Amino acid sequence: MTGPWSGKGFVQKDEGSRPMNVSCKIKGEQTADTIGFAGACRAMLILKREIGAQLKRVGDRFVGTYKGADVGIAELDGSYVDGETVELTMTFPRSVNGDDVAKMTITTPGDGTFTIETSDKMESGVEVTTSSILFSRD
């Protein structure tokens, strides 16, 4: 995870909005017990959003924070579901799409890439993938 990464994918605010293509640049840092990244994503060349996450391994779980949502910093808590996928519950400081909880999945297939995907259950009850970004090393 350490070093510069570039990503491409999409972000969707809610089930009624259209996905927007984004490109991202982040810098990651990893130690034995921590993983973190910080950077920014752009959409349509004019919209820019700072993003970042800090995770700490506590036993077989990961806890930390995520920066990137309109409503503020989300708390993260989760664990590996298999050898290459971590599923995290995101708890926001206030309601987003009807509640304060969403899901983040980080997949690292071992080929020099990783994917961050978020999903949220909308007020209608439909689960929507709200972002999916594939990162590769710069």
Rank of each mutant, 00 (worst) to 15 (best):
V101N: 11
D82H: 07
I26T: 08
T118L: 06
I26K: 08
G3N: 07
M20W: 12
L88G: 07
G52L: 01
M122T: 11
A74Q: 10
N97W: 05
Q12S: 04
L55G: 01
C41P: 07
L88Y: 02
F37E: 12
D14W: 03
G72E: 10
E87H: 08
D33P: 04
V22H: 11
D77V: 05
R42A: 11
E15F: 01
T105A: 15
S132P: 14
G59R: 08
R18P: 11
T91G: 07
M20F: 11
T129P: 03
S119H: 04
W5H: 07
M104H: 13
Y66H: 03
E75V: 13
G110K: 10
T91P: 09
E123L: 04
F135P: 06
G59H: 10
G9A: 01
K67R: 02
Y66G: 00
Q30D: 04
L55K: 00
A69L: 14
G7N: 00
S131D: 03
G9R: 02
K13C: 05
G64S: 01
D60Q: 12
G52D: 02
S131H: 08
T65A: 04
Q12V: 12
N97S: 13
E29Y: 08
T118A: 09
I133G: 09
P4I: 01
Q30L: 08
G112P: 03
F10D: 04
F135K: 06
K48R: 13
I26S: 02
T118K: 14
V71N: 13
V63G: 00
A43I: 00
A53K: 04
V22F: 06
D100H: 11
I51W: 02
D70S: 14
R42T: 06
D120C: 09
C24N: 04
G78D: 03
G39R: 14
G52R: 03
V101F: 08
M104K: 15
K25P: 00
T130H: 12
V81N: 05
T65L: 02
G64V: 04
E123N: 07
G39A: 14
A102K: 13
I133D: 11
S17K: 13
R61S: 07
V126S: 09
K103G: 11
R61Q: 12
N21D: 13
V11G: 00
T31M: 03
Q54R: 06
L76I: 06
Y80H: 13
I46K: 12
Q30K: 13
V126D: 11
V126E: 13
K25T: 09
A74M: 12
T129S: 07
G7F: 00
L88R: 05
P109H: 08
L134T: 12
Q54A: 00
E15L: 04
L76M: 14
N21K: 15
G110S: 06
T34P: 07
R94T: 15
K67D: 09
T108D: 14
